[in-house]
Design a protein around this nucleic acid. Structure first.
Lengths: 159, 159
DNA sequence: GGCAACACGCAAGAATCTTGCGTGATTTTG
DNA sequence: CAAAATCACGCAAGATTCTTGCGTGTTGCC
């Protein structure tokens, strides 16, 4: 199971390319990184098995699917004991509107990335679900106007 | 160019499956959605050409790559005229630490999703880059403790 | 009732994936 | 220092998948 230290320049190129286009064929990938197809495929599989590549995902166009509202919610809880943090985290998994959620430190305890069909749906989620959840203290929302940058998760100033 | 209204149940299944595993072979996908491979591939291509599938991306394991800090920054500007918003948006694209950025409404003007190798790198980004950028008024940061939910962008209570 | 439009499934050729194997380079070991 | 071991590469071939063209059945609309 290779770690960061075991990755060479070709591995980094593979990661960069697959982050840019996760459905690229292996032959295309192999020519881009400068080796032949078989060792390239072996490297990709090793990266997958090591958990460095966590998976692949299609990126969907939310507005085209009738999902016009993307928003972030910052949640502060009254009590931050471990059990209560876990309880709230579990609850986020049951809300389909919440796509990603993070436990954070700072002024808030959780940050929720939400997608809804329209403003009404988002507002009723905030009022009927979020603020009425036990132990929820503060809810601050930030409606997104537009996405300004959209790279992958990981940057590559690395070797 | 099909819109939401033109999608049937099979299209929604395709989107769900590819959001779960963007590198699935077309024959696997076709059996999962219950049609044969050729029409399935035609549907996927139509979804891509319509812009409903925006692309595919490998998901990487940031900690395994030596990127231990994931954080969000909420930025408030002094002046929010269109030109100034564009200027700041452009600037986010030049910062490798910033992976996604959104223009938002609410208490802040921008929300930045950042990934850094360690706390020091993130702190010097905040101090030397962010707060010293002209027109930046407030910077609130939220360091992530752990990811609590990680679905794709789009939910599927849809048909 | 007939016609056009559409999507499906089959089939075949092209491309890709996948595995085994031999070679050469680097590292480890005696 | 030399021999052996390890490793990753590239080639080649069989299996799988992709991709296209075509015929058929269904649906909707004259």
């Amino acid at each position: 199971m290779p770690l960061k230290a075991d990755l060479d320049a070709i591995d980094w190129k593979i990661l960069r390319e697959l982050q840019g286009d996760g459905r690229m064929t292996n032959v295309e990938l192999s020519t881009r990184v400068g080796i032949s197809a078989p060792p390239c495929l072996r490297r990709v599989k090793r990266l997958e098995e090591a958990g460095i590549i966590r998976g692949y995902r299609a990126l969907l166009n939310a507005p085209a699917l009738g999902l016009d509202v993307v928003a972030f919610c910052l949640i502060g809880l009254h009590h931050q004991a471990d059990a209560e943090l876990r309880t709230f985290a579990e609850r986020t998994r049951g809300w389909p509107i919440v796509r990603d959620a993070w436990m954070v430190s700072g002024e808030s305890d959780f940050l929720l990335h939400c997608v809804a069909s329209d403003l009404g749906a988002f507002q009723s989620f905030v009022i009927e679900e979020l603020t009425s959840t036990p132990n929820v203290d503060t809810v601050r929302t930030a409606l997104t106007i537009r996405r300004v940058k959209d790279e992958g998760l990981v940057s590559f100033a690395q070797p």
